[in-house]
Design a protein around this nucleic acid. Structure first.
Lengths: 173, 173
DNA sequence: TATTGTTATACTCTATAACTATA
DNA sequence: TATAGTTATAGAGTATAACAATA
């Protein structure tokens, strides 16, 4: 905490590069890292569910969604979704049911227990969201979301028109 | 493309859950995923440098920064930074120099080649940034960054006050 | 032939713990 | 004792390719 002997910290202040200060993409990335860390911290106790909160809400809003369709919705490969669904099934939050019309398809549903858990989780998520937007009035939040939407639209257009992306993984820093 | 026989796609439209539509954190996450994918797609050809663009700018703005300090700046563990610096050293973009005053410390510098590469890369990054914010005027970009800043401030405050987070990794969906 | 879900596999990124050399 | 950098290691999380069942 105080001035520790031998520590590098106290003397040299970190200079924020101008190139990053005005960059929307860089700020989005840092914000996402912070939001995710905070999210997981606050929502510990819900196991791995918080990490898939978005997916669970999508399942809830689209009961019986096919796996491939769900994978696309969260920008994941079909095969990557399988172990996630396995885990949520073991936890009892979701279930997969066969489809009579097309026996290849398995449809995903929230279980009653999963829906209950999601309600409780949702309350915590709302609290977290309120903390994030503390000090912003409703109009400002709307403005923020509107601007994010327009940036997102630009990106989706660009990605749709772009050639197949290089086969790589995501990174943080 | 068209209506493929047997495909699930065409019939069932995906319902966006209300709980996600108004959520800043969810939108930030999706936006970050899209921005990162687009970033890597556009900047393929620069190898792994784009992924560490932020870090390189920080090194540039803080020549001779100590490794531990750099790791903190990008929210990474000291040990995780080592192989990254090894790789950038092999690429010839950075170098580590011993510190006479404190022989434990190695200070990180951009090489001339690294600075040149970063200039070229920066031009592409600027183009990408311009694409993302296309349709937004200067005032709107400022508003966006200002609002993101305030949300970020809330998160940093919360994280500083929070207990030690659970030991887990980041996720995307 | 094409699609769905699955498996096997490998790769990337990250943290933890233990080590060394310095302080 | 504490700190800076490193190493060894393990764990998430992801994609690719190949497979069986079905369309």
């Amino acid at each position: 905490m105080g001035t520790v002997q031998g520590a590098i910290r106290a003397d040299e202040p970190l200079v924020e590069p101008d190139e990053l200060r005005g960059s929307v993409s860089y700020r989005i990335r840092l914000l996402q890292i912070a939001a995710y860390k905070s999210f997981e911290t606050v929502l510990a106790g819900f196991g791995t569910a918080p990490r898939y909160y978005g997916m669970l809400r999508i399942i809830q809003a689209n009961p019986g969604i096919a796996q491939t369709r769900l994978a696309e919705a969260i920008f994941l490969d079909r095969s990557s979704l399988v172990p996630i669904l396995d885990s949520m099934t073991r936890d009892g939050w979701i279930e997969r049911r066969a489809t009579p019309r097309d026996k290849r398809v398995r449809r995903v549903f929230l279980t009653p227990a999963g829906a209950q858990m999601l309600d409780r989780l949702g309350q915590e998520v709302d609290r977290h969201e309120a903390m994030m937007t503390a000090g912003l009035d409703g109009a400002e939040v709307d403005t923020l979301i509107g601007l994010l939407d327009r940036v997102d639209g630009n990106l989706r257009t660009a990605l749709a028109h772009a050639a197949k992306p290089a086969p790589q993984n995501g990174a943080t820093s």
